[in-house]
Amino acid sequence: MGLTLTHFVVLGAVLFCIGLYGALTKRNAIAILMSIEIMLNAVNITLIAFSFFNHVKPYSNLLTGQIFAIFIITVAAAEAALALAMIIAIYRKRQTVDVGEIDMLKW
């Protein structure tokens, strides 16, 4: 039994919903950020698997899935830096990183 696209897509789906569960249940903002990084990694696995199993001729040379994964990694790095800066700034003002207590914008 060789490896097929389904193996990698199902692995990505499992990883994605583990990350989704973490992002929904965690109260600490940094833990939510970690769960979101897991979700982004799951999407990267799916994209690179699609790139690997694409055999349609002019497109399979272009490695589009891998290029997309590179851009996702770029944006994820920027997002992590910004989110952690915001968390530290909020912690300095409010002495908390609990997302249940950060409700200044709540109506």
Partner: peptide, 17 residues
């Protein structure tokens, strides 16, 4: 949250397989 993420995962797996 467990039910929601399990539903999302099952939906993705169903769509992919």
């Amino acid at each position: 949250a467990l039910v929601v993420s399990a539903l999302v995962g099952l939906g993705i797996i169903f769509a992919a397989t």
